[in-house]
Amino acid sequence: MEMEFNVNGIKHILEVDPMERLLDVLRNKLKLTGAKEGCGEGECGACTIILDGVAINSCIVLAAQAAGREILTIESLEKDGELDRLQKAFINNGAVQCGYCTPGMLMSCKALLMKNPAPTEEEIKTAIEGNLCRCTGYTKIIKAVKEAVKDI
């Protein structure tokens, strides 16, 4: 089937299989490989993207469900060669180790800040509760988000 959606500000018209996952369409058809697959079952958050302002696991959403909607992926965060403040804060605070959870983590945090520019520590933790990280123990990720918020 043919579908139309907006990804990172660009309109795409694509031929997709009705059973194709959004994650696969982004990764394989649009070559936006920033979103990762860690479980394929909505349990790890590595595939997190933003759909109409909400962070979702793209591995458990069909591409067809995104028809006519707006998607933001990790590739959209950097603007005109300038990193998003969240990305900078992740780098400055040692919040990145192996990096496999990082794109999903950043998109969950971005969705949070889009709705709530001054979240509390509890709200940050809740926003990333579906994003597993095996490397950092989350401490530096939370610190990074707090720092990014402080800068606003």
Partner: peptide
């Protein structure tokens, strides 16, 4: 001193290739 991991910049951009990519 703290110096970020060598590939931090590519990792936060989602540009770094893992084998799956």
């Amino acid at each position: 001193k703290y110096i970020p991991i060598h590939d931090a910049y590519e990792k936060v951009k989602g540009k770094l290739q893992y084998v799956a990519d």
